[in-house]
Design a protein around this nucleic acid. Structure first.
Length: 183
DNA sequence: TGCACGATGAAC
DNA sequence: TTCATCGTGCAC
């Protein structure tokens, strides 16, 4: 299993989003290594993307999105669920990819189809915000035996307030995968 | 200092 | 369709 390098994240966000499908998300905590295969993601394209948190500008919360690529942006939504993003593109671009669903691979219990459930099952919370994904306890890797996959796309979920940005097909997922969230 | 509102999920 | 629950951003 090869850990993904900084250069992987330092690319166009849509490309990173598509390439994240099929990769393994690894989190080691409390002596337990949990692994999930990424099956659904959404791209958030920087400050002019009205659906992106970074469209509000540089704030204490969005600071991570404005930082260098290859870091985790973890935030609390609706006061009860954590959501995890991967920061992309060079510093200042404020772009990221939201991980929406994973397929359990190792030590993952409970449902994982949805950004909130994914974080609960992977034990991801605010402690991991701004964490470097080139660390040894929280990272993304290319699996040893990558399967060929068919990628489908569609509008992002829960961003109807974003006008024309809500219609763009920035959600990518593995076709037919049972762990993709549906609505 | 106060308040409206979510990149959700589950129940009804 | 409604609600739980709280940090964030912005209005006073």
């Amino acid at each position: 299993m090869r850990k993904v390098l900084r250069s992987f994240y330092d690319r166009a966000t849509i490309e990173v989003a598509r390439d994240l499908l099929g990769k393994h998300l690894v989190h080691v905590s409390g002596g337990v290594e949990r692994i999930g295969r990424i099956v659904e993601v959404e791209a958030y394209l920087g400050e002019h993307d009205l659906a992106a948190h970074s469209s509000k500008g540089l704030t204490a919360r969005t600071k991570v999105m404005f930082g260098p690529p290859g870091h985790a942006y973890v935030y609390l939504i609706y006061g009860m669920y954590w959501c995890m993003n991967v920061v992309t593109e060079r510093e200042g671009h404020a772009s990221a990819v939201l991980l929406r669903a994973i397929e359990p691979v190792k030590n993952v219990e409970g449902r994982t189809q949805g950004p909130g459930l994914l974080c609960r099952a992977m034990h991801i919370d605010r402690i991991l915000n701004a964490h470097d994904l080139l660390s040894d306890d929280f990272y993304i890797a290319e699996p040893a035996d990558p399967e060929p996959l068919v990628i489908t796309k569609g509008p992002r979920i829960g961003v109807d307030y974003a006008g024309v940005w809500a219609k763009r097909h920035l959600r990518f997922y593995i076709k037919g995968n049972p762990f993709v969230s549906r609505r």
